[in-house]
Design a protein around this nucleic acid. Structure first.
Lengths: 157, 157
DNA sequence: TCATGTTTTTAGTTATACCTGAAATCACTG
DNA sequence: CAGTGATTTCAGGTATAACTAAAAACATGA
């Protein structure tokens, strides 16, 4: 109860970000960390600062950060001469998140291939439409990523 | 233990589909139902048949079907003169799923707008890049959906 | 290498989601 | 509108995930 959040607006923001990502499968604590790192000052925070700001235990912060680091939505920053690590939202976070979508498409590719081998007599479209959808995205997704990069380049002006 | 699955191949398929969707936030039972409905014969199944085939209780089938119906990955079919409802994978399931992505983008739009109001002094890109990403998809997603429809039209031949 | 502060791991508690079996409700046929 | 089968709801038990507090492991500056 020392310094929960700078002000009400950012506190609300942290809660909203947490709620959004909770639906995406993250824990509430992970969502809070993400939300805080979106708006905190400075942008780089230690585990102790995160725990303090959000009222979480050291263990929770450690565990949830590990998850966020694994999906590359947070990165660790270490500077020479300082014993403590800092954590921050990486510069190109969204590009990374989008890239990870490729592996999810890969999962569906597996289900489509397997499905074609057990293709049902009636309504084979149940499998075929999945295969079509996957083929479509295997073709489109790389292009979309390229267009995103181009879009971001143009925004820098 | 009466008629668990037609054969080993489809049983494996059901398990794999269940595993995939479990990572997507569904329960194991919901994933099983989805997998079974992808390959079962006939394509339309009653709750009792689903419960029997997958070894689930009537309550579980009812509850999980409700969820699958809500996200439109399963549809209910009722025919005159028959007291029982049937459940099946809808013809255009993937189009529906893709369409629901629009609302998720909408959620991010909200986070971006709110974030711009509490824009941090340092590393404002933490919010700005989110806003850019959302703007990109607000522009691209409808086009992508159109291209998907065109792609599916061409496949019908 | 030591000393110190940071991070991770572990054990234990609490909260939540899942599933079952049974009762209640609902919908349709005759 | 009564009877029957299908579906939903509810209470209870079980498994799992989240979180905490404390101990262990780790890393770094001196």
């Amino acid at each position: 109860m020392t310094n929960w959040e700078a002000d009400d607006a950012t506190a609300t923001y942290v809660a909203d970000v947490a709620e959004y990502w909770e639906r995406g499968g993250f824990s509430h604590a992970a969502g809070q960390i993400l939300g805080h790192l979106m708006v905190c000052e400075p942008a780089e925070q230690t585990q102790a600062e995160l725990a303090e700001a959000l009222g979480l235990s050291a263990g929770t912060v450690s565990t949830q950060l590990k998850i966020l680091l694994a999906v590359e939505m947070v990165e660790r920053v270490r500077s020479r001469g300082v014993r403590t690590s800092f954590y921050q939202v990486p510069k190109n976070m969204w590009t990374r998140v989008l890239a990870s979508e490729t592996s999810r498409i890969g999962g569906l590719r597996g289900l489509a291939d397997q499905g074609l081998k057990v293709l049902p007599q009636t309504r084979p479209d149940r499998i075929v439409s999945l295969d079509q959808m996957v083929r479509f995205f295997e073709h489109e997704w790389p292009q979309l990523e390229e267009r995103l990069e181009e879009f971001l380049r143009k925004e820098e002006s």
